[in-house]
Design a protein around this nucleic acid. Structure first.
Lengths: 115, 115
DNA sequence: TCATTTCATCGATGTTCTACGATGGACCTT
DNA sequence: AAGGTCCATCGTAGAACATCGATGAAATGA
């Protein structure tokens, strides 16, 4: 199959976790907010997040095709988002399926909302 | 007076403006989200925003005292936030009063919320 | 087994960011 | 007028980032 998205591969196991009890203010939270916004602070990475959020499913491959950047550059951006915990990548045969990490995204929204 | 905050100098004239009609998705919105998060993507700048939001008023001077950075560096960070439209600075005699730009902050929240 | 596909990583290069001290302008206070 | 305070800007040095092409690893498929 062409497999551009996949609802099975990495359906968010974390989505029905309990509420986040971490404080939304304080030095720790500030660092976290800075780190998350920094990760998101690039047009290509925003675009990637949009792609993943819109589909509400993983995207297996084909992310490169959506962006006007070289494959290695896109891979680099995916790594930044992954290191920030905003997305997750699971190996699916020859491809890698990327999907958002709902928990971290919620955390980002909570932190921004606290401003 | 010592004047660390000032409710009069730049009370947000923009706070009772109408709702933002700009779209929260699309290429334009993506660029905007990237630009705003990039501006916020540094611990010092998050701290500055916290300072301003917490007081719900302007801070005239003294911002430097709150951060472990040189005056010129803090000024640099303030400029980044100002260029992004997240804060506003008004000259108040020898000092400059900084306060958040509620409109832009709301916009940021809306954009992040759309993810 | 061998070629192909998919992606991560490496190395190089140019750009941007972060930080500082020094300087200078604008505005009080005396 | 002189001195002091507050802050922006400049110049600079080092770190980090963004981008690309090339290479390599892992898995599939012929």
């Amino acid at each position: 199959m062409t497999a551009t998205s996949n609802k099975e591969a990495c359906t968010p196991r974390t989505s029905q976790e309990g509420p986040d009890v971490r404080p939304v203010e304080g030095p720790q939270a500030d660092e976290e907010l800075a780190s998350l916004t920094k990760a998101l602070g690039h047009p290509a990475r925003v675009q990637i997040m949009r792609l993943l959020v819109r589909r509400e499913a993983c995207i297996c491959g084909d992310i490169v095709d959506e962006l006007p950047l070289a494959q290695s550059t896109v891979s680099q951006h995916l790594k930044v988002l992954k290191d920030a915990g905003l997305i997750r990548g699971e190996i699916d045969g020859p491809r890698v399926c990327y999907c958002v990490e709902p928990r971290t995204l919620r955390r980002l929204k909570a932190l921004v909302g606290s401003l």
